[in-house]
């Protein structure tokens, strides 16, 4: 565990906490893409199947359980408890266009053609594009609440910090995983436009509003 990895995980955890608190405190999930949250639930379910087969560390087990549980909790809040506030008119991204190509790619490019490994690879590919419905929703409405922007910034930073972790591990431990690295790069690049707006607008106290 190096500092980049730890900061990445904490950033990821922070993003989830921000999102849950935002929904819970405002009793509303307006501006949040349920499609992205469904994708994240699929991502964590398929990635952490090794919870039942392999023990890594208490930290690892704890975080995996938290990520799986909170992803389902978020989906529950959006589609059941606060369903009336869900922005379904704007959340129209077709997630099958992400799920199926990611799965096909996982069947073709993986480290080992076994069920668990293909599902892990699928989760990595799917995570890299899972934020697209959320970014699509923001671009459709043309704006995002500050709290939603903070959520997106923390969530985007997490894989960016993992990139630094992988660079560190490549040199320090001679360890690398090309599938994770390339997908992580794609994931981080997708946030770049948002990062720019976040730094130039939200951090200066302005609302994130896209140019008309």
């Amino acid at each position: 565990m190096n500092i980049f990895r730890l900061l990445g995980d904490l950033s990821h955890l922070l993003a989830i906490i921000i999102l849950l608190l935002k929904i819970w405190n405002t009793r509303s999930c307006a501006g949040i893409s349920g499609k992205s949250q469904i994708l994240f639930a699929i991502v964590y379910t398929t990635r952490y199947l090794d919870l039942i087969t392999t023990y890594i560390s208490a930290y690892n087990t704890f975080m995996k359980i938290i990520f799986i549980a909170t992803s389902y909790a978020t989906v529950f809040l959006m589609y059941v408890k606060f369903k009336a506030t869900y922005d379904h008119n704007h959340d129209t991204f077709r997630i099958e266009f992400l799920i199926l190509p990611a799965f096909t790619l996982a069947l073709l490019i993986n480290h080992e053609f076994t069920l668990v490994e293909v599902l892990w690879t699928w989760s990595i590919y799917l995570e890299s594009v899972a934020i697209l419905p959320q970014l699509f929703l923001v671009s459709k409405t043309g704006e995002a609440e500050s709290i939603t922007s903070h959520y997106l910034f923390a969530l985007g930073s997490y894989r960016g910090l993992y990139l630094l972790n992988w660079e560190y591990r490549y040199y320090a431990e001679d360890h690398y995983d090309l599938i994770a690295i390339v997908a992580g790069l794609v994931q981080t690049v997708l946030y770049c436009d948002f990062f720019y707006l976040y730094i130039t607008k939200v951090l200066k106290g302005k609302k994130l509003q896209l140019p008309a």
């Binding site: 090794d50 890594i56 690892n60 975080m63 490994e117 431990e173 001679d174 360890h175 995983d177 090309l178």
Partner: peptide, 10 residues
Amino acid sequence: KLDVQPKDEL
């Protein structure tokens, strides 16, 4: 070194 399993990252 490329480890397929186990995965130690999240």
